Structures are given as structure tokens and as C-alpha cells.
Simulated assay, not measured.
Amino acid sequence: LSNSGQEAAARTFNAAIPGIVQSKANSGKHVHLVDMHSKLTTGDLIDGIHPTANGYDKMAAAWYAALQSVPGSIGQSGGGTPSATPTSSANAIRGVGSGRCLDVTGVSQVNGTQVQIWDCNGQSNQQWTQTSAGELRVYGGKCLDVNGGGTADGTSVIIWDCNGQNNQQWRFNSDGTITAVGANKCLDVPNYSTANGVKLQIWTCNGQNNQKWTRV
């Protein structure tokens, strides 16, 4: 929305939606959240509200990605690469050292939002689905992502539209660590912290509890 007041109201309204959708899913409803707000900019709006042709193209791409993420929603097109399919149900991922869960800050669905540890609460921003492509998906179409494809110790971990790159591939190891495939480093809670809100990073794997995780 081009009007700042309307935009603020939309963000407030949108922040409530993931929890509502999750509550419906928890009660057995077949519902799925597709975030359109973060997909468009004011440049994609013809009059500040309605999308341009390019805006509609972006919306269509978001719907298609969401359909690909839901088992049975869409088939494989002829001869193409199979879509990433879930290999497990959505679960929280709890840090062994902190006892807190892998969490998208502020229940945001905006590309680039950092992930953190937070008290486990069962909300949609803590529900992660592992796929056949090695992704960890949240909200259906967002992936756990090593920022900028970085490989250096301390590189931040964010969410981003799922794109099949190796900075969005993760491997669960038998010792409880989770390796970022592209960087070959571990998902890490900095400085062994256990506090709510600590932002996560990748770091050279060392086998310590701040790099160990369990599905719950």
C-alpha cells in the first residue's frame, strides 16, 4: 500500500494471521498461509492498492511456490525436476543447550528476517518442515537460509523465499547438529547463550550443545 497509514494497519493485521492459520491447522483444518504482502512493492501497484501485470505475475509465482510445498496440491510437470516434498511433518526444533526453539523473529514473513531462539510456543514461526531437497521450510514457502550464501563463521541465518540454492540446504546429523550444506558449518547459538532473542549464525562445527538440536 502506498499510504503509510494503510500500510501500518495492514502490517498489524497481517501479523495476526499466521497464528490464526496455525490454530485452524492444529484443529485439523486443511489450511495453508500464502503471504502476498511481502511479495509486492509499491512499484507493483497501479493505483497504490491494485497490482500491475507484473504484480500479478509475482502473486502467481507465490501461489505456485505454495502449491509446490503442500503434498498432493500440484503434480510434477512433464519431464521437469520434481518439486521439493516434505519428508516429515512440521515440527519445532529445540536447542539442546538453551531449551528454546528455532524461531522467526516477530512472526515475520519478510525476506531477510533473522532467526533466533525463543521460548517454544507452538506458533507458526516455530514450525519447520524438512523437504526432500534438504530445505527447512516455514510458512510453506520460506526457507532457512544462510545470508548471502556466506561461508564465514558468524554469518547470520535468515528466512528467504525458497529457491533451491545450497545455502538453503541443511543436513541433520546423528550427533544432533544441523549442517549448512553450502558452507559446511553448523547452525549455532552465539556464545552458548540461552536468552530469548539471540540471533543465530553458522559456525565451524565443534560438537558443543549450542550447536545441537532436537525435533519436538
Rank of each mutant, 00 (worst) to 15 (best):
A133D: 09
N147L: 09
E135K: 07
T155G: 03
Y139L: 05
S132A: 08
S132I: 06
V138I: 12
N147D: 06
Q123L: 06
I159Q: 12
L136G: 13
G140D: 13
L144P: 02
T151D: 07
Q126N: 01
I158T: 12
T151G: 14
S132G: 10
W128V: 05
G148F: 11
G154R: 01
Q130I: 00
R137G: 02
G122D: 08
Q126D: 13
G154I: 00
G134N: 02
I158Y: 06
Q126W: 03
K142Y: 14
N125V: 02
R137K: 14
Y139P: 06
G122L: 08
S124V: 00
A152I: 03
N125M: 04
K142Q: 15
Q123I: 00
V138W: 01
C143E: 01
Q130F: 14
G148Q: 08
S156P: 14
G122Q: 09
K142T: 08
T131R: 08
Q123M: 00
G140C: 08
Y139V: 09
T129F: 10
E135T: 10
Q126P: 03
S124R: 15
S156E: 04
G149C: 04
Y139M: 07
D153R: 03
T151R: 13
T131G: 08
N125T: 02
S124N: 13
G141K: 10
S156Y: 08
S124M: 15
T129G: 11
S132M: 05
G134P: 04
Q123K: 07
V138E: 01
K142E: 10
R137F: 03
Q130T: 10
G134Y: 00
N125C: 05
Q130W: 06
A133T: 01
V146Q: 08
G122S: 01
S156G: 14
Y139G: 13
D145A: 11
A152W: 08
I158G: 05
Q126V: 03
G134W: 03
G122W: 02
W128G: 02
